[in-house]
Simulated scan of single mutants.
Amino acid sequence: MSYHFAIVGTRDNPLFDLDFGTSKLGGDGLSHFKPEAAHMNQFILHASLDMVEEVQWANKDLYLKKIDSYQNNSIHCFLTATNVKFLLLMNPDPSATPYSQHTPGTTTSPPPRAAANAKHSATLLAANPSSPQTEEAVRVFMGEVYESYVKCTLNPFYRANQIITSPIFRSRVQAAAKKYL
């Protein structure tokens, strides 16, 4: 399973980006997205910002849960008090996501998975993105990242909507991903 995590600023500008894979159940922790997914993942997350604006008023919590899905991807969102958005794109099988074969205006579904692969993916978090286990793991991950984000933004040299380049912040996000996802 592969993940793309992004922090989007108040002006819908990207502040932070990270690709990683699952570390649970023998995962290697590496992202297995196809090369064309690098830009598509950013596009999918930014396209889901419209859904964030709709969902944020219907939910009293900062963690908005699963807000959107596209092809084989599920998008989860955490909204900060300053309207900065934490977006997590989850893809259980990046090799089955046909980014380059998709044409606007058509609906394509990923090819069917092999039975062995389906059996293994049923135990993974993203096999059911709306399951309570997945929602809890993502909520705890987002909470830990939010705590690191607050500490990062308390730096007197940090300005609002500035790109986060701190290697310490990046390592803390990676550690939280390894711990919970």
Rank of each mutant, 00 (worst) to 15 (best):
A6T: 13
T10Q: 06
R11I: 13
L15W: 02
F16S: 04
L18K: 11
F20A: 06
F20V: 10
S23I: 04
S23C: 14
L25E: 15
G27P: 02
G27C: 07
D28Y: 06
G29R: 07
G29S: 11
H39P: 02
N41R: 14
I44D: 04
A47Q: 09
S48V: 06
L49V: 07
L49W: 08
L49M: 14
D50W: 08
M51D: 09
V52H: 03
E53T: 08
E54Y: 08
V55L: 12
A58D: 10
K60F: 15
L62D: 11
L64N: 01
I67S: 03
I67M: 00
S69C: 01
Y70D: 04
Q71M: 06
N72D: 00
N73L: 07
H76W: 00
F78Y: 15
T80F: 07
A81M: 13
T82V: 04
V84D: 03
V84S: 04
L87A: 02
L88F: 08
L88R: 00
L89E: 06
M90V: 13
M90H: 00
N91V: 06
P92Q: 11
A96I: 06
Y99L: 14
Y99P: 03
S100Q: 06
S100K: 12
H102V: 15
H102C: 08
H102Y: 12
P104V: 14
T106I: 07
T106F: 02
P111C: 08
P112A: 14
A114Y: 05
A115W: 01
A116G: 10
A118W: 06
H120P: 01
S121D: 11
L125F: 07
A127Q: 01
A127C: 05
N128E: 10
P129N: 07
S131W: 11
P132A: 13
T134F: 01
E135W: 02
E135N: 14
E136R: 15
V140I: 13
F141W: 13
M142D: 02
E147R: 04
E147Y: 07
Y149V: 04
V150K: 03
L154T: 12
R159G: 00
A160G: 02
A160C: 00
A160H: 05
Q162Y: 06
Q162F: 00
I163H: 10
S166A: 11
V173L: 00
A175W: 14
K178D: 12
K178V: 05
K179S: 13
Y180D: 03
L181T: 05
